[in-house]
């Protein structure tokens, strides 16, 4: 028990260290000594307006997406599902486009709720399709999700092309934190609060991950827990897509890495999943900022490359186990 807490503290420290690194790098030079000299300078303004919001946004988005991924995996009872391989994220992006076309003036919160509604509908469609596939194998499930995501994505692209919005929509298709400033990321707190709510229901998500019969036997209302889970996943995805854009793979990799080390009991693993998600996205964002300094590679791209490789490794590992 003590050892476990010790390791968790260590992990917290690691994420805090990454967060600190994230605070200190960027195109503008940060002179930390200005903070203490009281000479005014622009260090505190830079931190307050840009670096702290960006770092917070990374941590919030990374941990929320990781938890959303875990919940999605429990609902679909499949390891390889996450918002970006279940049509959820693409549907949220379609929702954003719908808002831009039909009600461009509405508030960001309303925009997030619309995107969340689209995400919910898209994910529900994914589950409906899954239900109709008999004897599905573990690998077919994410393939179905990727295909559904592709179809939704092409609908978005079609309308964006027709209405000359391709440029704007690309912002939502590739996650990027370079535009995060104070006042422009706060929606992510809502996603994070929902992720915390998911933690409160951790046992219920584990139970539905074991199976419907199992959950019903211990007195859990299966359909209600699935519905709540879908709502949490959709709104988290929407909050991230609306704020910084689509970030793939975090929800896939973080839960899988943690499960390998410490199993799937969500009550125990969820804090680790959240920390892993935060660390992963901080690392990728830092890498994106450093590789061609002072220019940036969007985090969505970096995560895509890193995540794609890890995803492949996970699939191959799985194949070996099965075969």
């Amino acid at each position: 028990m003590f050892e476990r807490n010790g390791r968790l503290v260590l992990a917290w420290t690691g994420v805090a260290a990454l967060a600190f690194v994230s605070l200190t790098i960027g195109a503008g030079t940060l002179h930390l000594e200005e903070l203490f000299s009281g000479s005014g300078g622009n260090a505190s303004a830079l931190l307050r307006e840009s670096r702290v919001p960006r770092t917070l946004a990374l941590v919030l988005a990374g941990s929320s997406l990781a938890i959303a991924g875990l919940i999605m995996q429990m609902i679909a009872r499949n390891r390889f599902v996450e918002p970006a391989t279940a049509g959820t994220a693409e549907s949220a992006a379609l929702g954003v486009l719908a808002v831009m076309l039909l009600a461009p003036g509405i508030s960001v919160l309303a925009r997030m709720l619309v995107a969340g509604g689209f995400a919910l509908a898209g994910t529900f469609l994914f589950l409906l399709i899954l239900r109709r596939i008999p004897h599905r194998s573990a690998l077919v499930v994410p393939l179905v999700g990727l295909m559904l995501g592709g179809v939704i994505d092409s609908i978005t692209t079609f309308f964006a092309y027709r209405y000359d919005l391709l440029q704007s929509i690309s912002t939502w298709m590739a996650g990027d934190f370079s535009g995060v400033l104070a006042g422009r990321y706060e929606l992510l707190w809502i996603g994070f609060a929902l992720a915390l709510a998911g933690y409160l229901a951790a046992d219920r998500f584990t139970a539905i991950g074991i199976g419907e019969t199992f959950a019903v036997n211990v007195g859990i209302n299966y359909n209600r827990v699935v519905a709540i889970g879908l709502l949490i996943v959709s709104l988290i995805t929407a909050s991230v897509v609306v704020t910084v854009g689509l970030i793939p793979f975090v929800g896939l990799i973080a839960p899988n890495l943690v499960a390998m080390r410490m199993g799937d009991n969500a009550r125990r693993s969820l804090p680790w999943v959240a920390l892993t998600g935060a660390a992963l996205i901080l690392l990728c964002d830092i890498a994106g900022r450093v590789v061609r300094y002072p220019y940036e590679i969007p985090v969505g791209t970096v995560v895509g490359v890193v995540g794609g490789a890890v995803f492949l490794a996970l699939l191959l590992r799985r194949e070996r186990q099965v075969g």
Binding site: A202, T206, V218
Partner: peptide, 21 residues
Amino acid sequence: IMLRLTVRDLVAFGRYPHNHG
């Protein structure tokens, strides 16, 4: 089951109806 759970984790779920976790 697809989840990685220990025997003790699983058996502990038997108490869920009584203690809700």
